[in-house]
Design a binder for these strands. Structure first.
Lengths: 257, 257
DNA sequence: CGCCAAATTGACTGGTATCAAGCTACGTGG
DNA sequence: CCACGTAGCTTGATACCAGTCAATTTGGCG
């Protein structure tokens, strides 16, 4: 990895302390609070259609005409793009409070498939109704812009992870991201189910499923993670800061041979 | 590359015929028209501050307080992110009509550096003024949302390129993207200057500068591109469809050993 | 002219992909 | 209840693409 010239001062970036809270807790950290407030406002200002979907359900497909945006009130989604020559790519993951469909605004057509990873509650609003409501509720416009802005930030983070990290660190970064997303929403982050197959994780990270599997085994051997006996899709993260440090250092903490 | 299950119908995706026009022409293709109209509206509704910047100039840095959005009226920019542990990543490129700073909305702080790649004209507007104007000019809100939506789409495309294509195709895809961006803005796309070093291209694509250099040499040998004598940063694309086909097929058209 | 950044090219290395075999969990039907 | 099929996962052996290291060339500029 080589540097790109241009001298600069280094901005201090941030890392919120990821407080692990019990799974039944109401979110009380700031991010969780903001998500809850945003959902509250959406609920009252827009009266979205609510529905429950199940793992594998598709709420829109690439090519479908765009008229609605969707907000995830609970559950997990993956977004999958398909290129004209048949390459498939997981381009994003979605959690409670996240929006789905922004990328369709510019072309009037969805650009990817949105697929539920488990049972989820989806709120749906008409885009034109949203625009109307944004004019009467400036706070709503702020929320929408914030959500789009966050999506852009998150995409850049993915790009950075994939372009600059070796396989081990990529998988560690993925686990870190997932845990942090849970934590920010007041869900327990020290023990959770991945809800993605090794193939899906690999695709998302630009790796093969075999590499993901090997890395997970290695991380477990190094005790940065642990598998639940029964179901190697359920993992524990005994020491979250150690995982974060592993991503940054990109070398093994004694034990990873 | 393996498939991710989930049977599906394949949406027909698109590819606008990239008309190559002379460099002095006013844009007449639809994309170029829309960019011109958007700029027009921004100019009249917002009266942005205009200024000229030069190659290497920085219009904002990661960590700077966010108050303004910027629109590129001419020239080229790169966006560079820096991770907390010092990894640098080119996370985007910007052309005429593109906005800069969306990713700062959610945190109130810019998340990357915006650096001019040559002489450029930048328009700057206060974000709060823009929000006001969006309420009185719904068309303006549509333009802003469209721009953010496009940015998200573009990021996903990058991710797909980097995750699913080998080095040769990535570089070809990059050239394709650059040429198409020029073409959409009414600039000549069959012959242009790259304005990025090999290191910057490599960083953007998740490759080393040596690999980029080798691939460019190979593409030239295969006559998919040609270098300008003097300055190997100026390239010709004699057969644009052939380049596009090369990206999709991901194997060499006779001659590339 | 001489310096320095950028680019090219070659030789070698190493990290992931690929190919392949076998294991585990789970659901279905006999 | 068990046999069987299948999807997901693990692990090993091998291949190969791209990274690393290094030497050299090219071009821009004071």
């Amino acid at each position: 990895m080589q540097t790109l010239a241009t001298t600069r001062t280094t901005p201090a970036f941030n890392a919120r302390p990821a407080a692990v809270v019990g799974s039944r807790e109401v979110a009380r950290n700031s991010t969780g609070q903001r998500i809850a407030e945003a959902l509250q406002l959406i609920a009252t200002a827009l009266e979205p259609k609510r529905r429950i979907v199940h793992a594998g359900d598709v709420i829109y497909r690439a090519g479908d005409r765009f008229e609605h945006l969707h907000i995830l009130n609970s559950g997990f989604f993956k977004l999958v793009s398909l290129s004209s020559d048949g390459r498939e790519q997981v381009v994003g993951l979605r959690f409670r409070g996240d929006w789905l469909g922004f990328s369709a605004i510019s072309h009037g057509v969805y650009g990817c498939d949105a697929i539920a990873l488990d049972t989820a509650e989806v709120w749906t609003v008409r885009y034109d109704a949203l625009l109307q409501a944004c004019i009467t509720h400036p706070a709503l416009m702020a929320i929408v812009h914030e959500a789009m802005s966050n999506e852009i930030l998150r995409d850049r983070d993915s790009l950075m992870t994939i372009c600059t990290l070796p396989a081990d660190a990529r998988v560690a970064a993925f686990l870190h991201y997932w845990a942090e997303s849970l934590s920010a929403r007041g869900l327990r982050a020290d023990q959770f189910s991945l809800r993605l197959t090794r193939a899906e994780i690999g695709n998302y990270l630009g790796l093969t499923l075999e590499t993901v599997s090997r890395v997970l085994s290695r991380l477990a051997r190094a005790e940065l993670i642990a598998f639940n006996e029964k179901s190697r899709r359920d993992i524990c993260i005994p020491d979250f800061p150690a995982l974060a440090a592993y991503v940054e250092r990109r070398d093994a903490p004694a034990g990873l041979h």
